[in-house]
Nucleic acid binder design. Structure first.
Lengths: 145, 145
DNA sequence: CAAATAAAAGACTCTTTTATCTTAAATTAA
DNA sequence: TTAATTTAAGATAAAAGAGTCTTTTATTTG
């Protein structure tokens, strides 16, 4: 798996919040966990990380929940991935050799760095705004159902 | 990590065997584990899988060890990856949604399938023969050192 | 202020992956 | 045929990832 489970949940949750953010009220984590079919407590932990990283903002108490901390067009899926999984996928050697790079390359290095960059590009070109528009217009899925 | 640790060890080991296979004698797993700095017993299990999958052949007893089961130019790195990790990386949804595909795509599907295919292509175009030639000619690394 | 609500935080469990250790089986060679 | 060597197999352990449960803290509303 390219992304950890926590990371895919974080991306799905961010897109869910972006999609709801026309209503200016906070998005309930409980509702989101029901709709996305993600364990509530596990989701909570992931969202806490995204909040700590300045991607989401949260509010306790009745009518509380979470919101995007910045405008949806200023947050990319790469931002969410980096916040949860870090940049390992985009920097590591595909054969796991420490210190692999142009000076001391592994047998796959030159080919791998192009694929790795394509992967990063894929995540960086998609903003939450544009992606949630796609979801609405094309009827794309965010959950198991 | 795109590949499991077991899988990266399997690829490194296969390349090591290919590189040694000018000498027609069996390659010692013990020597290989020392040179590649991979735990002997863990490596043994991985090689057993590759043997079971028909990529390697083994021989017990003194002067025993392993060899490629086919010619190095007829084994690709993809073969090794599929034998150990299966085809999950090349078929799964990047957001982990079960049943994601062109009929019921996730928000990243269309972009992801191109990256996924590039990844498969990277592994499938490299034979053990060509890659071990590269290693010799360009002095590439197979181990931590 | 008190009660209800909802996120935050931390402890804990389960599963999978990675790694180690021990014993068994096969083969070679003296 | 016996001793040494080397892979095979299985049991166990350690670490990481995924998921659950309980308690605490902050906020709203009656």
């Amino acid at each position: 798996m390219v992304l950890s489970k926590a990371c895919t949940y974080g991306v799905l949750a961010s897109l869910y919040v972006a999609k709801q953010s026309e209503n200016k009220s906070y998005v309930s984590i409980r509702d989101m966990s029901n709709e996305l079919r993600i364990s509530f407590h596990f989701l909570t932990k992931i969202l806490q990380k995204l909040t700590a990283e300045g991607i989401l903002q949260s509010h306790k108490g009745p009518k509380g929940g979470i919101l995007l901390a910045r405008e949806a067009r200023n947050i990319t899926i790469l931002d969410v991935v980096l916040a949860i999984d870090g940049d390992k996928v985009f920097t590591e050697c595909v054969l796991g050799l420490p210190g692999c790079g142009s000076e001391r390359p592994c047998p796959m290095h030159n080919h791998w760095i192009t694929v790795r960059e394509d992967l990063r590009e894929m995540f960086s070109t998609k903003t939450l705004a544009a992606t949630s528009d796609d979801i609405r217009e094309l009827g794309l899925r965010l959950s198991i159902e």
